[in-house]
Structures are given as structure tokens and as C-alpha cells.
């Protein structure tokens, strides 16, 4: 690990200024991903600007929904009464991620901005276009069990590992970003990038831009929502496939639906095509299956992860079926 300076920022503007003026500086939240990557030699910042103690640690009710401070810890967000009551899929997603110790340390913004990654990205002895642009992708033709089936490129097939972000994308979350030039708001779904020819960039954020909050617009029907995660171990394991879903039923008809997938792409994947297919349709397994197929028609699995396509289809159907039965 190369030597680095440490600065505990006093306020968000100071943090932004400190990182913006120094190319090798990065923000430090809970550190559960960054510190690991520094140990592995994957990240080599020469300055850490600690934003974990900024006064951004509240969940507040606003006129339009909930505002989650960037430094709210994952465990506190999952346990927050309004999150549990209004968006169970978000509480469930958080609780399915990592371990109790990591959730106590990891922050909201840090969870969103953990690296999209794969085992080769974390192994500096192997080529990886994300870590070292132009060096090649070791996963293509290699071990692909955890890799993307949607939206990947020939440069990179890694997936974003967050559970929380999948539920937030389904909830139409908006991230508030403070940069050297001021504040901006952007839909969380637009924060992330697909790998294309520049897999080294996970998000659209510029150097020095700091996520200060996540806004969750009120979605009354999210009170009936779920997060279903399929993984190799019962606990403390990344998703092979996960589904966040909220269902609004009018009798036996789908009035509205929110659906997002994890473990399948370089970013949390909002299943817009499936949602469009489902609106106005009967809440039946056949309809759920057709919706899943609409989304997964574009799937391009790799040799070794073909199983993810039927797994994603079945997980979508099972999640929507459970929500339908819950509503009866």
C-alpha cells in the first residue's frame, strides 16, 4: 500500500474541495470496500478524505418521501421504522447484504459507490480492463459464474454487487451530488454506467463529486414489496440473481409494478421492459413469465453462467407470485 494523507473533513464543501484539487484523493466512507481494495493493490489513493462523520447521518421524512443521508450506516437504514414500514424491499435488500459487522460500518453512499467488480478485478496478477484499461478481460473465457448476462461488453462482464442499490433503483431513488461547481440531482438509475469501451468507470460522477443524500420518493404501493436473493450460500454471499419488486394490484390486474434485478449486469438493472409488459395485465404466473421473458430476451450469457437466465426468469416469477398471494 502506498503512503497516504488522511483528512477528516469538517463539512461537505471542504471534503469536495480537498478531493477535487488532488487527482489521487478519494472519499472514505465506511471503508469496507476501499480499504480492502487498497490492501489488494487495486486502489492506490495518496489521500483519503474521511466523510463518514459529516452530519449526513439522518433519515428524514420530507414532503415527497424519505431523504437518506449519505453517511447513514446500512444497518441503521435497514432498521429504520419508516424504511421497514414503507419500503420493505429496501430493508430486505440491506439485510440480505454482507454481514452484521460490515452493515454496521458501510454507509449509504459507500454502498452505492462500491466498485462494480469480479474476482479478476481484485487479483492484480491477472489482466483486467476495468483495473488496467487495455490489458484484456480474464473473465471472458474464464470463471463466469458471477458475471453479467445483460448489458455487458467485450471489455468487461463484471456485475455491481450491491443489494441495496437494486431496491433503490426500483424505488426511483434520486442521488444528491455536491461537486466543485455546486449541487445536482440525478436519478440513481442514471448514476451507473454500462461498461462499453470504458469499463474503468463505474459511474458518471466526476472526480471530486460527493454523494450527500439519496431521496426516496414516496411510493405507496411499495408497502407491498419484496427482495428475493438467490446465492450459493444461505448468508453472507453475493447474489447470483436478485429481484426487487413492488406490486400494485387492482383486483386481479396489475395496476402498476416496479421491478429491478441484481447480479446480472454492470449496474443494478431496472427491468423497464418487464414493467411495461405487465401493466394492465392479469396478475398470473403466465403474465409474470411473459414479462420476465420480455426483459431477458436481450440476455447474452457467457459459457458458464447460462443458468442465470432461467434463474432470473424464475426468481422474477416467484417474487411477483408471492407478492400477489400476500395481497389476497
Amino acid at each position: 500500500m502506498i503512503p497516504f494523507e488522511y483528512l477528516r473533513a469538517g463539512d461537505p464543501a471542504e471534503a469536495v474541495a480537498a478531493v477535487a484539487e488532488r487527482p489521487g484523493a478519494v472519499f472514505l466512507g465506511g471503508g469496507t470496500n476501499l480499504v480492502d481494495h487498497m490492501k489488494l493493490g487495486v486502489a492506490e489513493p495518496d489521500m483519503l478524505v474521511d466523510v463518514s462523520r459529516l452530519p449526513l447521518d439522518r433519515v428524514e421524512e420530507t414532503a415527497t418521501g424519505l431523504r437518506v443521508g449519505a453517511a447513514v450506516r446500512n444497518s441503521d437504514l435497514a432498521a429504520h421504522p419508516l424504511v421497514r414500514e414503507r419500503c420493505p424491499m429496501l430493508a430486505r435488500a440491506l439485510l440480505s447484504g454482507a454481514s452484521g459487522q460490515l452493515r454496521n460500518a458501510a454507509t449509504t453512499a459507500g454502498n452505492l459507490l462500491q466498485r462494480t467488480r469480479c474476482p479478476y478485478f481484485q487479483d492484480v496478477t491477472t489482466p483486467c480492463n476495468k483495473r488496467e484499461p487495455g490489458s484484456g478481460c480474464s473473465a471472458i473465457g474464464g470463471y463466469t459464474r458471477y458475471h453479467a448476462i445483460l448489458g455487458a461488453s467485450e471489455q468487461c462482464v463484471a456485475v455491481h454487487p450491491s443489494d441495496m442499490a437494486v431496491a433503490m433503483v426500483a424505488l426511483d431513488a434520486v442521488v444528491i451530488v455536491l461537486g466543485p461547481g455546486g449541487e445536482r440531482a440525478l436519478p440513481l438509475a442514471d448514476l451507473y454506467r454500462l461498461p462499453g469501451d470504458t469499463p474503468q468507470r463505474d459511474t458518471v460522477l466526476e472526480h471530486g463529486e460527493l454523494v450527500t443524500a439519496v431521496e426516496l420518493p414516496d411510493l405507496p404501493f411499495a408497502r407491498r414489496s419484496a427482495y428475493r436473493k438467490v446465492r450459493d450460500r444461505t448468508s453472507y454471499s453475493f447474489a447470483l440473481v436478485s429481484v426487487a419488486a413492488a406490486l400494485d394490484l387492482d383486483g386481479g390486474t396489475v395496476r402498476d409494478v416496479r421491478l429491478a434485478l441484481g447480479g446480472v449486469a454492470h449496474k443494478p438493472w431496472r427491468a423497464v421492459l418487464a414493467e411495461e409488459e405487465l401493466r394492465g395485465k392479469p396478475a398470473t404466473e403466465d403474465a409474470f413469465r411473459r414479462a420476465a421473458d420480455a426483459e431477458l430476451a436481450a440476455a447474452r450469457p457467457l459459457p458458464g453462467n447460462e443458468f442465470k437466465v432461467p434463474m432470473a426468469r424464475n426468481t422474477i416469477v416467484a417474487t411477483l407470485r408471492d407478492l400477489t398471494e400476500e395481497g389476497r
Binding site: 488522511y6 469496507t32 490492501k39 459487522q101 460490515l102 460500518a105
Partner: peptide, 26 residues
């Protein structure tokens, strides 16, 4: 030493965390 095994767990200001994935200076 990578946050996966939990052997380094301590209570930091009363909350359990893995002490290997955080810098002392923080």
C-alpha cells in the same frame, strides 16, 4: 485480513465491526 472471517471483530463505540477493514487514524 479482508473482512470475510470476522476473527478481528471488536465493539467500536458499542457496535460490532471488523477491525481489519478500517484505518486506526479514522
Amino acid at each position: 485480513d479482508h473482512g470475510q472471517c470476522g476473527a478481528c471483530t471488536v465493539l467500536l463505540d458499542g457496535r460490532r465491526v471488523v477491525s481489519c477493514l478500517t484505518f486506526a487514524v479514522a
